[in-house]
Computed example of a mutant assay.
Amino acid sequence: MATFLVLIPPGARSQDERARIVRDRFSWLALFLPVIWLLWHRAWIAAALAFAVQALGSAVSDHPVFGLAGLGLFLATNLLVALEGPSMVAAGLERRGWTVDAVISAGDRETAEDIYYTESPAGGAETRGSVSLPASETSQRRHAPMLGLVGFKEGR
């Protein structure tokens, strides 16, 4: 089962035909061709940044002492785009005003489209209104970031 994010354009209603379905998974194509993959998905800034980091890695890999570090930088960029590429695409759409309308678990894209367009929002698709947020985002109390450690300023 894969997870699909359904994003709708600004001002659109749920189950709009212009909705964009993004599969949130590892991408083999992005592992081997990260810049081309990002350009294909219109993530221009991320593609430029990936190209610059890969160029730096290539330049450093020619150095006799730092050769392995350059290769590691090159491979780390490829792996990062392969793992986080779909999230970068979804974040880019959200910056342009698109909203996440549903999160669907399905075997393939066609099944995800069937679930999204045929079932009611309370059915198989988890709509934005019913997505449960972490307690830190819904709490009235705000505290400083703690890098995953428990905060004791709240009287515990």
Rank of each mutant, 00 (worst) to 15 (best):
S61G: 00
V22D: 10
A47Q: 03
W40V: 15
D24L: 14
F32Y: 03
R25Y: 00
L49H: 06
L49I: 13
V35P: 02
E17M: 06
A50L: 05
V60E: 12
H41L: 00
I36L: 15
D62L: 01
A48V: 10
V35H: 08
V53A: 08
R23D: 05
A52H: 03
L31W: 00
V53P: 06
I21G: 08
A30F: 11
L33Q: 06
Q54G: 11
Q54M: 15
F26A: 07
S61W: 09
A59Y: 11
R42H: 13
A47K: 03
V53W: 14
S27L: 01
P34Q: 02
H41F: 10
W28A: 02
V60T: 13
I21K: 11
P34H: 02
I36Y: 06
E17Y: 05
W40F: 14
L49Y: 14
S61N: 01
G57S: 05
I21P: 04
R25G: 13
W37F: 07
A47E: 01
I36E: 06
S61Q: 03
W44T: 01
S58Q: 12
L29I: 08
S61A: 09
A59R: 01
A19D: 05
Q54Y: 09
L29C: 07
L39V: 12
L29K: 07
Q54D: 06
I21R: 07
R18C: 01
D24M: 15
R25V: 14
A52V: 00
R20N: 14
D16R: 09
A43S: 13
V60K: 09
R20E: 15
L39C: 13
L56Q: 02
A55M: 14
L49P: 04
I45R: 02
A43Y: 07
A55T: 15
A43I: 08
V53G: 06
L38R: 10
I45M: 09
I36W: 05
A43L: 10
A48H: 06
A19E: 02
A59N: 02
A46P: 03
H41E: 09
I45W: 03
D24E: 12
L38K: 07
A19W: 02
D62P: 02
V35G: 09
A30H: 08
S27D: 06
A48T: 06
A55N: 11
A55R: 06
L33C: 12
P34F: 03
R20M: 13
L31F: 05
L56T: 13
G57E: 11
D24F: 08
Q54E: 12
V22P: 01
A19R: 02
F51R: 03
V22G: 04
W44S: 00
D62E: 15
H41Q: 04
D24G: 07
V60C: 05
V53K: 02
R18D: 15
L38N: 09
W40M: 14
A52L: 08
S61F: 10
R42Q: 09
A46F: 04
R18L: 01
A46T: 04
I45T: 05
L29E: 12
R23F: 03
A50V: 11
R18I: 01
L38F: 08
P34R: 03
L29S: 12
D24Y: 11
I21T: 14
F26I: 09
A47V: 02
A50D: 10
R42V: 12
W37P: 10
A50K: 12
W37Q: 07
G57W: 02
R25P: 08
A50F: 04
A30P: 07
